[in-house]
Amino acid sequence: MSLVRKYGLSVLAILVSAVVFLIPFAFIIMMAFKDRTQAQLLDFSWPQGFHLWTNIVEVVTTRNWMLLTAFINSSILTVASVTLLVIFAAMVGFVLQRRKTRFNGLIEFFILAGLMIPPAVVPTIWLLQGIGLFGKLHGLILVEVAYGLPFSILLYRAFIATIPRELDEAAIIDGARPFDVFFRVILPLLWPVTVTNIVVQSVAIFNDFTNPLYYLPGNANATVQLTLYNFQSQFNTSYNLLFTNIALITIPPLVVFLFFNRQIVAGMTAGAVKG
């Protein structure tokens, strides 16, 4: 009886999850396999013929290899932003956790403000123009760092609280200067939370649509999310290509998910609960 109930519930859960969560992804993949005419029907049907490769070639080569450029841009954006985020956030998290001063309250206020307040878009554009970084990839990199810092700092601070202060002191007695204490003793110990940070922030920045839309206009330096947006209007009639594009840009998060599922879940829950 209870066996039936237990498996009944399991089977039901699997069926519902398949309909709700898997079919949309199956739909994307099947669309990517179809040719233009069949894709036009927008139905959930088995692809007639194998058109994936031609679709990929067409999507990638369109508009002067725009998707390839976009992938390169997005990679540079993600790698550079996350690198800076990790180092700068870890430095702040370290000193913030270790050194109690009367400024800590203010700093914490700014961190919480950063998590809550929506960025002021047009003034930021105005500022970026002022310093000559509007529409430039490194300008966007700095923006992503600025927006990502509060979350990363909270993650680091929580983790650093678990590292005994004795370790810093042992290093100080051993002759380490502040720089050595951080980069040779603390930073290596932060590796688990650094992995979490890298994974969570990479996904967020790679998937970011709004900020590139505002701060990096123009097709020349589009990011992958913008290609989708641009193609959406262009490929009004070429759903096969649109979905091939969606499938292609879903691959990086999928890879991250397969390899770092645990860290990403840990990071998002830990950061969220503490924030």
Partner: peptide, 15 residues
């Protein structure tokens, strides 16, 4: 140690 983060955050978010 606060400085790099403070500059980026202050300039591109707070300001």
């Amino acid at each position: 140690f606060f400085l790099p983060a403070a500059i980026i955050y202050g300039l591109l978010f707070l300001l």
